[in-house]
Design a binder for these strands. Structure first.
Lengths: 191, 191
DNA sequence: CGTACCATTGATCAGGTTCAATGCTCGTGG
DNA sequence: CCACGAGCATTGAACCTGATCAATGGTACG
C-alpha cells in the first residue's frame, strides 16, 4: 500500500490490513487547482480525505456573497457529513485552491464494510468524532476570540491554510471582509 | 418503562427492549434550580440527556466573564462530549436554570454494552452524530446571521430556551452583552 | 419591607463595514 | 521574452453597530 496513505491510517488508527481493506473499495483522485469536487449531489454519498493539497467548502448566500465555511488542507476530511448521513442534497460546494490529491470513500462501500464487520462501525464513529471535534473547536474560536486573535490562531495552529488559500477566502472563513483582514494583517506587522 | 423516557427512545431510535437495556445501567436524577452538575471531572465519564428542564454549559474566561457555550432544554444531550471521548478534565461547568430531570449514562456501562453487542456501537455513533449536527448548526448560526437574526432564530426554533433561561446567559450564548440583547429586544418590539 | 440581582436606558468609544480608488502580481498571448 | 490584463490585496473616508461605563428601574425572594 502506498505510503502516502499513512496519514489517513494514522489519523484513524488503521492497521495496514484494515487500510488495505478500506482502499479496495475507495479511490484516489487528483484534481487540478480550481477544480470543483463532488457537484450534483455527490456530496451526499462520498466522504473525502486530503492526502495533499487544499480546498475550501463554501456557499453563495442570498446576497450573492461567497462565504467559506471550511478551509481544509493535508490530513483533513472533507465533504458534507450531514448530507452523507441523511442523503439530502447539499448546499455546499467544494473547490481546490491548489493541485490536490484525495481519497474518496463511497457511502455504499462503507455500509458494505459495516455489514461484514462491526470494526467499521467504530471506524465510522471515529469519523463522526473527528467531525464533531473540529466543529467544536470552530465554535470556541468564533465565540471566544476577536477577529485578530482568530487570524493569529490560524497562523500558529494551521499555517498551511495561510500558505495555500487566498486571503479573500480566509477573510470570509473568519467572518470578516477582505478589507478588514488586510487591516488586521498590517496591524500585526507593526507589532 | 417510564413514558417520560419516550423522548430519549424516539430521539435515538431505541426499541422498548433496547431502552430497557440501556436504563438498567443508567440513572435518572432530579436537580433543583441552580444546581451544578457533574463537577470534579465527572464530565469525562458521563453523558446526560434532559428529560425535562433546562441547563447551561458555561465557563469563566481569563477576564472573569461568564460565557455560556450551550443552552439545553428538554430532549437535548449534555455533558462535555470531547472529554467523554478522551478522558481529559473538562473546562466546562453545568448549571440548571430550573428544576431539571436527567438521564445519566456512564461511560464504562456504555463500553460494557458495546462489548456485548455492536448495536451499541451504532447507538454511540448516533450520539456522536447528534453532537456534530448541533455543533454544525451552531457554526452556521454564528457565521451567517447577525446578532438580531440569531435571537429571532432562537425564538422561532427553540422557544423553550427563551422561556427557561435568563437573558444574561442567552446574551453570552449569542456572543453579545446583556445591554446589546436588551436593545435588540426593544428593537424587535417596535417592529 | 428591604435587598440583591437582573434588565433597561443613555452617552461615548472602538472596530468592522461599505464604497471607492489605487497598487500589485501572476498567468496569458503576442 | 516581454507587455498587458484580470483579479487580488491594500488603503482611505464616512458610517454603523456593538462594547463599555454608568445610572436607573423592576422584580423576586427572604
Amino acid at each position: 500500500m502506498n505510503e502516502k496513505l499513512q496519514v489517513l491510517a494514522t489519523k484513524l488508527n488503521l492497521s495496514a490490513d484494515r487500510l488495505q481493506e478500506l482502499m479496495q473499495s475507495s479511490s484516489v483522485v487528483k484534481y487540478k487547482k480550481g477544480s470543483f469536487l463532488m457537484h450534483h449531489g455527490e456530496l451526499s454519498h462520498q466522504l473525502g480525505f486530503i492526502i495533499k493539497g487544499a480546498l475550501r467548502t463554501f456557499t453563495i448566500n442570498q446576497e450573492g456573497e461567497d462565504i467559506s465555511f471550511l478551509l481544509q488542507v493535508d490530513g483533513d476530511f472533507f465533504g458534507d457529513y450531514e448530507c452523507f448521513l441523511n442523503g439530502k442534497k447539499s448546499n455546499w460546494q467544494l473547490q481546490t485552491t491548489e493541485g490536490t490529491e484525495v481519497v474518496l470513500i463511497e457511502k455504499q462501500h462503507l455500509h458494505h464494510l459495516m455489514d461484514k464487520d462491526p470494526f467499521w462501525i467504530s471506524f465510522y464513529k471515529q469519523i463522526a468524532d473527528v467531525c464533531f471535534l473540529e466543529a467544536k473547536r470552530r465554535i470556541e474560536e468564533l465565540l471566544f476570540y476577536t477577529y485578530e486573535q482568530r487570524y493569529l490562531n490560524l497562523i500558529t495552529n494551521r499555517p498551511k491554510v495561510i500558505e495555500k488559500i487566498p486571503q479573500k477566502y480566509i477573510a470570509s472563513y473568519l467572518g470578516i471582509t477582505t478589507q478588514s483582514l488586510s487591516r488586521i494583517r498590517s496591524r500585526i506587522l507593526l507589532t
